[in-house]
Computed example of a mutant assay.
Amino acid sequence: MVFCSGYMSPEYASDGVYSVKSDVFSFGVLMLEIVSGKRNRGFNHPDHRFNLLGHAWTLHMEGRPLELIDASLGEAYNQSEVLRALNVGLLCVQCNPDDRPNMSSVVLMLGSEGALPQPKEPGFFTQRIMLEANSSLSRKAAFSGNECTITLIDGR
């Protein structure tokens, strides 16, 4: 599986295939970021090296989804609405685009109180690979600290 940081869908990151379900993936990442108060890119947790999607999935599978909620909210939130948002967010970040809802379904799910489908494992549910201290790569800058990207379009 290819690792992607940010909001890019697995099918776009690995194969360059873009669809309306790619936007759904990005929306799901954004929902999980809003609820958690954390960014997917650069997410760190002391107990594991999962990204935010992996962390949300793990908490969901362990029956502890409320632990994902931003602590700065205190008790000032509607628990059922936040749990619904987490579930919908996980549905949006499914690995297979066919398993993701379309945006009109997302809007309906967020605005209703009916039962929701159970999500499957999200796309890019990965652990970050840490460089070995003695590797030659670890002595060099493996990643740029610049969060700016430039895309140049070139004809085939």
Rank of each mutant, 00 (worst) to 15 (best):
F3W: 10
S5T: 12
S5W: 12
M8F: 05
M8C: 10
A13P: 01
V17R: 12
V17F: 07
S19C: 09
V20K: 14
V20G: 09
S22F: 01
S22N: 03
D23P: 02
D23R: 02
V24D: 02
V24H: 03
F25I: 06
F25D: 09
G28N: 04
V29I: 13
L30P: 09
L30C: 10
M31N: 02
E33F: 05
E33Q: 06
I34A: 08
I34W: 04
G37V: 06
K38C: 13
G42A: 08
N44V: 15
H45C: 11
P46F: 03
D47P: 02
D47G: 10
D47N: 14
H48E: 05
H48V: 04
R49V: 12
R49K: 14
L52E: 07
H55P: 00
T58E: 11
T58S: 13
L59A: 10
L59Y: 05
H60Y: 15
M61C: 14
E62Q: 14
E62C: 08
G63W: 03
P65M: 07
P65L: 00
L66T: 15
E67Q: 13
E67T: 08
L68K: 02
L68Q: 03
D70C: 08
G74F: 01
G74V: 09
A76W: 03
A76H: 08
Y77M: 02
S80G: 04
S80W: 01
S80P: 01
E81A: 12
R84M: 04
R84I: 04
A85W: 03
L86D: 04
L86F: 01
N87Y: 00
V88K: 00
L90R: 00
L90P: 00
L90N: 02
L91F: 03
L91A: 07
V93E: 04
V93I: 11
V93W: 02
V93Q: 03
Q94W: 01
Q94M: 01
Q94V: 01
Q94F: 03
Q94K: 05
Q94S: 13
C95D: 15
D99T: 06
D99C: 10
R100T: 02
P101G: 13
M103N: 09
M103L: 15
S104R: 14
V106A: 02
V107Y: 08
L108F: 04
L108K: 10
M109S: 04
L110V: 12
S112P: 00
S112D: 09
E113I: 09
E113A: 11
E113F: 08
G114K: 09
A115W: 05
L116I: 05
P117I: 08
Q118D: 13
P119V: 08
P119D: 07
K120C: 05
K120N: 14
E121T: 10
G123V: 07
F125T: 12
T126P: 00
Q127H: 06
Q127D: 13
Q127S: 13
R128D: 06
R128I: 05
M130W: 10
E132N: 13
E132S: 12
A133T: 13
A133D: 15
N134G: 11
S138P: 00
R139W: 08
K140P: 00
A142Y: 11
F143P: 00
S144D: 14
S144Q: 10
G145I: 06
G145Q: 14
N146G: 00
N146A: 02
T149S: 10
T151C: 13
L152S: 09
I153G: 06
G155Q: 13
G155A: 14
R156A: 06
